[in-house]
Computed example of a mutant assay.
Amino acid sequence: QYPKGLGRSDDRLLELIEEDKIFAKSLFDAAIPEVVDFIEKKEIKKVLVVGAEGHVCIYQTVRSLLDMGLEVFLVEDAVSSFTEDLKATALSSLGQMGAVLVNTEMVLFDIARDSKDPHFKFISNLVKSLR
């Protein structure tokens, strides 16, 4: 986001992200040169997208990521917009453009893949608390 105009991100997120991986942006599209460079250097092929505003920043970012040839997974219950109608329109449009619409529970169990995964119990309890 644009810290100068909007303030820093939530402290809970900032605790999890290295400072040199945080990029300020004034564009609505988060696929700014620093992010595109990171994606290319790391040879990233698949991206999970969450955030706000679904009908503005998420919409423009997902379009850019799709244009880059990336497989984009849009986590619909982790996207917000000013209204549910704005969000629904953005999700529908982006799904038609090729983004894969998923939800948080799908993503979490996809990460674990197996009940023998060492993180499965944590994920399972997290999902139960979200329900």
Rank of each mutant, 00 (worst) to 15 (best):
A99E: 01
V127L: 02
G69Q: 07
A24T: 11
P118W: 01
D67Q: 13
A78I: 06
L86T: 08
E84W: 05
D67L: 05
N103H: 08
V72S: 00
I111A: 11
E34P: 05
R12L: 10
A52T: 13
V62R: 06
M97P: 01
G69M: 05
E34N: 12
G54V: 07
A30M: 12
V72M: 03
L27I: 01
F73N: 13
L13E: 09
E34G: 01
R12C: 03
R63I: 12
D110R: 11
I32M: 04
D110M: 11
G5H: 09
V35C: 02
F82V: 15
K4F: 04
R8P: 13
S129E: 10
A90T: 10
G5V: 09
A52L: 14
S129H: 05
P33D: 06
P3D: 08
M68T: 06
I44G: 04
L70W: 03
L66G: 09
Y59N: 13
P118G: 05
S80D: 07
L48A: 11
L108R: 07
F73Y: 15
S115A: 10
G51H: 04
A90S: 14
L91W: 03
G5F: 09
Q60C: 03
G69Y: 02
F38Y: 14
D29A: 07
R113I: 06
R131N: 14
V75S: 07
A52Q: 08
V62Q: 04
E53R: 09
I22H: 00
L6T: 13
C57I: 04
E19K: 15
E18W: 01
D20R: 09
L66C: 09
V127I: 14
K41S: 10
S26D: 08
L70V: 07
K87I: 06
H55L: 02
L66E: 03
D117M: 00
L66Q: 08
V56L: 12
V75G: 05
D29Q: 07
V50M: 14
L70G: 04
Q96N: 10
I111K: 04
Y59M: 11
